[in-house]
């Protein structure tokens, strides 16, 4: 196994004084692995992936991303963030900028790329998510599915080694979920390391190398998708799966 690109070593995190949201998390992700994280709400799955680019700070343990340990060093954090793209449930596109400007912003201001090159790269990514013809519209003029695809393209403009997806389809109308998942599936085939919080179990079966089930801040069970769904080991996992697959 290659050196892991993400390492969680006994990570603990609390919100305030009494909400222990992550408990003794140990996780190693080799480059190129695709992980789906599921679990009930409040189980800490979003917090877990938000720790990887330090949108959340952990209080105990170590997190190492691409060889850089996450601590208070701002420069190191900015370095890590250039390697980690993130897609949010609520898209979080910048509504005052056109789609194209949303994509060129970071390459131009963080990557110091000339405008022309940044636009070229942006158009390349927009084509990749099949939305190039909307480049000059504003985000709110697009449908939810289109907005989320733009958000994916924006994250890809940094050429990240790691992509984090935080419930990317949960805010979408049912008819639009597929177009977004299709784009992510396509990315999955291209060797990028992916961590995806989702309850789309069909998607998990199709793309994940590993499925992680979390509850109450702990990793309860992890396995390849085949065994995870067909032979869940713990009672808690079986109970969860029966609830989300039972209808």
């Amino acid at each position: 196994m290659a050196d892991p690109i993400i390492v969680f070593d006994k990570v603990n995190k609390w919100y305030g004084d009494d909400f222990h949201v992550l408990r003794d998390i140990d996780l190693q992700v080799p480059p190129g692995e695709r992980i789906v994280i599921c679990g009930p709400s409040g189980s800490g799955k979003s917090t877990l992936i938000r720790c990887i680019n330090r949108l959340e700070e952990h209080q105990q343990g170590r997190i190492v991303v691409d060889g850089i340990e996450l601590a208070d060093d701002v420069k190191a954090i900015e370095q890590v963030r250039k390697q980690v793209g993130m897609v949010f449930q609520q898209f979080n596109l910048f509504p005052h900028l056109t789609v194209l400007d949303n994509l060129t912003l970071s390459p131009m201001w963080v990557g110091k790329m000339p405008k022309k090159d940044a636009e070229e790269r942006a158009m390349e990514q927009l084509k990749r998510v099949r939305i190039a013809e909307q480049a000059n519209k504003f985000p709110l003029q697009l449908s939810g599915g289109q907005q989320q695809r733009v958000a994916i393209a924006r994250a890809l403009c940094l050429k990240p080694k790691i992509m984090l997806f935080d419930e990317p389809t949960s805010a979408l109308d049912p008819e639009m979920i597929k177009e977004v998942l299709d784009v992510i599936v396509e990315l999955a085939g291209q060797g990028i390391t992916m961590l995806c919080v989702t309850h789309e179990m069909g998607f998990a079966k199709a793309v994940a190398n590993r499925v992680i089930f979390m509850d109450q801040g702990q990793i309860v069970e992890e396995n390849n998708p085949h065994d995870f769904f067909d032979h869940p080991k713990s009672e808690r996992t079986r109970d969860f799966l029966s609830k989300i697959l039972g209808h």
Binding site: N53, L55, E78, R81, K82, V84, G85, M86, F88, Q90, N92, L93, F94, L105, S106, W109, V110, R154, A155, L158
Partner: peptide
Amino acid sequence: IPAGQVEAARTLGMSYWQ
């Protein structure tokens, strides 16, 4: 301004002032 806007900017590597 929703917190998500700042978070998105941070994940894109932008500094506080940017």
